[in-house]
Design a protein around this nucleic acid. Structure first.
Lengths: 342, 342
DNA sequence: ATGAAAGCGCTAACAT
DNA sequence: ATGTTAGCGCTTTCAT
């Protein structure tokens, strides 16, 4: 197809392929005059270097894999939307392609090994956390990775983290500020580390305001990580009775909040009149839900970009990787919290 | 890193690199004995051929790009979830990687040109439809593409299609079967072709049952393709009055239905008691919305797989591409439609 | 059926 | 600063 290659460019410019290569890679070692001449020819011919040749000689793929772990489905995770888009743009602007890998079950794990063996991955990005087996595979093969929004308290790998305890604290303080005293906590078991961190924030806020922490109001849904709202819905109907309800529930994320609201409505309670709901994330449907969710927004786009930057630095050997903590989020006040203040 | 290459394998097996290459690619021209011996050595050494070398010599990338057009954000399109996952798995099983490209605005279009110029794409997949400029770029560069769920009536490119007129008809007939006579149509302007096809089905159903088609009940929201529910919400509040409402609205997709419901609720109407809502898609939140949506489910996973198959055949020169029509969908009856039958 | 050898289009070490 | 040349690890043509 495209017959113009580095050799042809070098001939047209009257220089050696090396000179052209240097110009292409912005390296010094060519005179300004040569550089300009080469650049002109390149532009004139619309020349774009063949990436595969480059890959072969440099033993690098310029590919970053987006890996999904077995228990996690990125494309049903509303949270991931902003992150992925931003990561793709950032990666592209830095010369990487983003390669999409399937959810990592046993069969697909072999595929990962193959792709790595082929030399087709320079690094990997992961949403939230990574299956230990997959992580081991990456490590064995010296493929650097960065987790975006790790839920762990002390993640063993480079990642972008939110201060979830802090966020939970902030959200609960808001509830208290609105006059709530009977505040329940609602977490999901598929995200145990995340659960614990949020719970800590909840407990700290209540303690600080001398509010009793009642065991009956620490709720958890035994979800499978996929159908979160449904599991939450069932949990609520099972564990709460219409007659004895908290005035507010802090749900660990929007999907949980959605499940909670639909569960409460099915029980005949109304939100926010009977029970206020607050959560963390601000996923795209949050503002169209009924009632629109009051939730703590997280800057997902920035997380995606930052993750790519960190990964790049590891790939280039400029860094060992880091745990990057995001600043706190922004509370988006909508309609799911009712004020009890006079 | 991995120092084992085809040469080493050939030496260990006591044959030529050519023989090994033939074995790797399942080509004839080697004796059964040689083949077995080579396979044994390959297994023993855990040898995986270098993909970039392969790409260079074959002038093929084994990459399929997932392209998003400017006015469309795949990761906020709940519909795309199932499709993308299935497409990735299928593509991988056929030896392709899926490369994620950013939304195609002007700047990113240059990136597409670059990626193509680099020789890094064998074919492209697109959700719904593709920007004409992007399509032209692909065509100029002889990059085959397949659109998944094209909304066009007569798409000029290979694609997977739903019979939306048929689906709309089916859905409206269901409404009529539930005793509804005052049925409104609600489309979105960002999807004009899709709008028209659904409208046709709506009109056909009503005509067939001798129901009047009233201009005032053919509603359209002037959305930007991104914040669909919000635009729909506003449209409804503007064009409908609480006193004069249809008993049912057929919304062209779930996101539109969500906007419609929240708009109606804000107007003081209740769904489905005052107004029934039905739509097409069955996106993941559909069953958690209040009320849970009655909607026509589309087999998104199958669409993704089929698209990859068709694309592969074009890439291999086995086919010119085709327009593949899906069978009709499955009506998921939940709570958003109220029966008016005695 | 088998192997030698010439690419594929770059990068990089080395010589000038 | 510039050019020569030898890879990178495959596929493929062409002899044998």
């Amino acid at each position: 197809m495209k017959s113009v290659n580095i050799k042809k460019i070098s001939q047209l410019a009257g220089v050696s392929p090396t000179a052209v290569s240097f110009v292409l890679n912005n390296r010094e070692g060519v005179s300004e005059e040569t550089r300009r001449k080469v650049q002109e020819i390149i532009k004139q011919e619309g020349y774009i270097p063949n990436i595969n040749s480059r890959r072969l000689s440099m033993k690098r793929s310029f590919n970053i894999a987006f890996i999904n772990s077995e228990t996690y489905a990125m494309f049903t995770d509303a949270f991931a939307n902003g992150t992925v888009k931003a990561a793709v743009c950032k990666a592209n602007s830095m010369g990487y392609n983003i390669m999409l890998l399937p959810e990592m079950n046993l069969k697909n794990r072999d595929y990962l090994t193959t792709v790595i063996g082929q030399g087709d991955i320079d690094g990997a990005l992961v949403m939230h956390d990574i299956d230990p087996v997959i992580y081991a595979t990456l490590k064995e093969n010296k493929i650097p990775m960065v987790a975006i929004d790790s839920h762990m308290q002390n993640p063993p790998y480079p990642c972008i983290m939110m201060r979830y305890e802090e966020l939970a604290y902030q959200v609960c303080m808001y509830l208290i500020g609105q006059g709530h005293r009977d505040i329940a906590f609602l977490g999901i078991e598929s995200l145990p580390e995340f659960y614990l961190r949020c719970l800590k924030g909840y407990q700290r806020a209540l303690s600080e305001k001398n509010l009793p922490i009642r065991a009956e109001w620490i709720l958890s849904a035994a979800d499978d990580g996929i159908n979160v709202p449904e599991a939450v819905q069932n949990t609520l109907k099972e564990k709460l009775s219409r007659e004895h309800l908290p005035t507010a529930i802090f749900c660990v994320n929007d999907l949980t909040a959605i499940g909670a609201i639909s569960g409460l409505v099915q029980m005949g309670a109304s939100v926010p009149e009977d029970v206020s709901i607050i959560s963390i994330d601000d996923i795209s449907v949050a503002k169209y839900y009924i009632p629109p969710l009051t939730t703590l927004r997280v800057d997902t786009a920035y997380m995606g970009e930052k993750a790519v930057e960190i990964l790049h630095n590891i790939i280039e050997g400029k860094s060992e990787g880091e745990v990057f903590c995001m600043d706190a989020g922004e509370l988006i006040v909508r309609k799911s919290v009712h004020s009890l203040n006079p």
